[in-house]
Computed example of a mutant assay.
Amino acid sequence: MARRYHTLDVFTDRPLSGNPLAVVHDAADLDTAAMQAIAREFNLSETVFVLPATGDHRADIRIFTPGGELPFAGHPTVGTAVLLASLDGLNPGSETTFRLGEQAGPVPCRVQRLADGRFTATFEAPRLPAAIDHTPDTAQLAGILGLDSRDVGFGAHVPSRFGAPVSFCYVPVRSRAAVDAIRVDVGWFGETFAAIGENHPAIFAYSSETAAAEAAFYARMFAPGLGIAEDPATGSAAAAFAGVLNRFERLPDGRHGFIIEQGFAMGRPSRIELSLVTRDRVVTGVAIGGGAVILMAGHLSV
Rank of each mutant, 00 (worst) to 15 (best):
V184F: 10
F123R: 13
H25L: 13
R99P: 00
L128M: 07
P71Y: 00
R247P: 00
V286R: 06
T12A: 05
G290M: 11
A27M: 07
P92K: 14
R281I: 02
D60E: 10
T135D: 07
L16G: 06
T234D: 03
P71A: 10
P129K: 12
G267K: 00
D231S: 04
D9I: 00
A194F: 11
S236C: 05
L145D: 10
D253R: 00
G254P: 02
T80Q: 05
T77L: 09
L8I: 04
A37H: 04
A59C: 04
A39T: 08
C109E: 07
A85S: 13
V107P: 13
I203E: 09
A212H: 14
A205F: 07
I38E: 06
R110Y: 00
A2K: 12
G285A: 15
V24D: 03
Q140G: 00
G289V: 03
I259F: 13
V184P: 12
S94P: 00
P92A: 14
T122M: 12
G155L: 09
S86L: 05
L295G: 01
N199C: 02
A194K: 15
A104Y: 01
S275R: 15
P126W: 04
A73F: 04
A297Q: 13
H25K: 01
V282R: 15
T192S: 08
V286Q: 08
D31C: 05
L70M: 09
R281F: 06
G105N: 07
I38N: 10
E249N: 13
A195L: 09
A292M: 09
L128Q: 05
A239Y: 13
N199T: 14
P165A: 09
G155T: 05
D88E: 13
R174Y: 01
G227F: 00
R4T: 11
A212E: 15
A202P: 02
A121K: 12
A265W: 03
V171D: 10
V283R: 02
A215W: 07
A164L: 03
R176F: 14
T138E: 02
H157K: 01
H157G: 00
T192P: 04
G289P: 09
D151Q: 14
H200T: 14
T138Q: 10
P232F: 03
A53C: 10
F241P: 06
E124P: 03
E198L: 14
T65E: 02
V82I: 15
L30I: 06
V23N: 02
G227D: 01
D116R: 07
V111K: 07
T65H: 05
A265N: 09
F217L: 15
L44A: 02
S270K: 09
G257L: 02
V171N: 08
A194C: 04
D253N: 11
V173A: 06
G285F: 00
A215Y: 04
L51P: 03
A223R: 01
A212S: 06
R220E: 02
A156P: 11
F123N: 11
V158Q: 12
I132Y: 12
R176N: 11
T138N: 04
A297I: 01
G143F: 03
F119S: 12
E124V: 14
Y218M: 09
